[in-house]
Design a protein around this nucleic acid. Structure first.
Lengths: 206, 206, 206, 206
DNA sequence: GATTAAACGAGACGGTACGTCTAGTCTTGAA
DNA sequence: TTCAAGACTAGACGTACCGTCTCGTTTAATC
């Protein structure tokens, strides 16, 4: 979300412009990819002056993170599929189909790359993307524990560590398969991967 | 490696220049990161004309892939540590320490991002980086099978699929932890992760 | 002067604002010169909204002409110094000291430059600046004729032509010396110049 | 003239570009005037990149001075017309017709205005325009002295002062008549003006 | 030893995009 | 209706790199 300076006087910022800009950004990502996307082009697509972009976002990175983060909000959820195995497999396929979208494909890695040099950007990614995904892990684990598929962690520190680990394993494998290995995450792969993870989780517990 | 057009006449290309350019590229990555690295700056650092860069590499992406790939060659190996568990833990820590380097940190994700739009770049990454890492998986699995820690795959197709899966799980988790979650891969994390993976591999087998 | 549309309803315009704006304009001219003077800056200095400027003046040019014209009103007069020679020398030094002011120095040439492309601006300059200066020529000549230093013109057309000529010679020389040659108009120069002009006027008559 | 750094290595600057840029600048001045002339537009007209302009000239002011100065070189000369009166009248009409050109009309005053704030620009104007005009005064006076129309100055200091005075009177009157009063310099005006100046010069001497 | 052909440095070239700035207009709520 | 505040469109600014090109100068292998 753009910075909201909470003013009281003067003309208020156009909320339409916000939407138009983010939509235009996603459209430009699809057509041009991260590398060729330009601020001027986004402004033109949104029917907005460049100044209006820069009044809200400090630069390309911030804008793209926000534009992409919105997709994570809309497309990640964890319906109860009845078993840990089904839940993991479901979220893997769901996440993979999100990563296959042309607007996320390039943009995600690009902003991650930038974030290694930019603390503000890293925080933005963490709160806009990472934390939202992690919450799915927490939900899924709680369900599995309720079902008796997974033991409860002895203490909170350990619980948090395990959640982080599971998150990096699942998200990391899907991202790596999709973007680095550049191979499709199909049902077969998801089945194999889920077997490995669920096996590891239950074996490690036993 | 830069393109070598196999000429016979004329002044041969300076091999010093090759080295100087790759060194300069890594130095520039450390200081500036991917985003601020420019061809002109690399040329100046290397004491070389811009033309000389473009005579050898098509652009920034190709140059950086080669500069980073050299590090993968030098720093990835798989000594026999006596057990599957020790081998996995070792390679995880080794890969993590490579990713912590400032010259790889940004560069790797950046070229991956670019590769989603550029097939030639994807091939270069695959042969220069991905395949070299995968070969470690093959070596490690063969050892584990020799030791009797893992069963032999029934057929080659399945063997290849499993190797790819293990590769994406291990590399993906380390990359994601390091770059996306932006948390350190320390021995504790490596232990937990290894337990999960080895548990999954042996459980899935049993 | 700003346009005064003689309204009766609504909040009346602040007369303080008029003065504050013109003062701020002159202050900005001194500090920044014509080129760097901005409407936003003038508004801020005057403690006034930009809207208020545009409600009174059509743009930068009009505003600056008015701000400068006020100085011409205050600082140009022609006391009777007893002789044609003394009157000319006096007005030359007076005009020169006005042109030496930093707020007139740049502004005058700048608005003249703009006026070559803008008829409305040319008229504004003519009535706000040129005509006021010309009236001094008429006064001075009438005195000189009364004193018998100059003959009376045979007809009005010729009289007008001569007045225009004298005006352009005196004002032109002072402006050119000050702004183009960028040399000071000191008493010595004024003496030499006056000798030339008065010599020409009386010789031409004889 | 653009800055000439006298290099020996590297690709030499295109002399065609120099000409094309100055021509384009004059064309743009005619069409748009000083205020609307933009560097980008000049570059486009000249078929040249903006960078190429900025490599040679520091900005709009410098470029326009050079573009206009070229006209002064080409169009100001002082053929011997047989008498001081004829020489003065000739140069007045010649200078007036130069000032009437749309490309000089606005530009000259505009750069003079800027020069009041910019010493480098003032120097450029002095050497590119003022000094060249002054040399005509020196030539004309020498001729008049040879003809016996004017006395020789007693010393050099006085000679220089007089030359400067005559220059400011002639150039100033023509500029002021043309640009400030915005009236035409026709033969009649030139005759009247010449009578005044020549009268003053010879009367002052007598 | 002379020739030759490519690689070399330097740096100008046409372009594209950047992020900033200013002009002048429009929209809000308070006076 | 004006005011202060400030967001808005439009577009020029000067900078930085891009990747290409044109020079004149090495430099090794061939003649």
């Amino acid at each position: 979300m753009p910075s909201t300076p909470l003013r009281r006087t003067g003309r208020p910022r156009s909320t339409e412009a916000d939407r138009a800009i983010l939509d235009a950004t996603r459209a430009a990502l699809v057509e041009l990819g991260w590398g060729k996307l330009t601020m001027g082009d986004v402004a033109a697509r949104a029917g907005v002056a460049k100044t209006t972009l820069y009044r809200r976002w400090a630069g390309k990175n911030e804008l793209v993170v926000d534009a992409v983060a919105a997709l994570f909000d809309e497309h990640l959820e964890l319906p109860d599929r009845g078993s840990l195995r089904a839940d993991v497999e479901g979220v893997v396929l769901q996440f993979a189909s999100l990563l296959e979208r042309p607007e996320t494909k390039t943009a995600l890695m690009a902003v991650v790359a930038e974030s290694t040099r930019d603390d503000a950007l890293r925080d933005r990614i963490r709160s806009a993307i990472v934390d939202r995904q992690k919450s799915l892990v927490l939900i899924g684990r709680a369900r599995a524990q309720t079902r008796g598929e997974l033991p409860r962690e002895p203490d909170e520190t350990q619980a948090a560590r395990n959640a982080d680990l599971i998150f990096d394993v699942i998200a990391g494998a899907v991202v790596h398969r999709t973007l680095v290995s550049a191979e499709p995450v199909d049902e077969e792969w998801a089945r194999g991967f889920t077997a490995l993870v669920v096996g590891g989780l239950t074996a490690g517990a036993g």
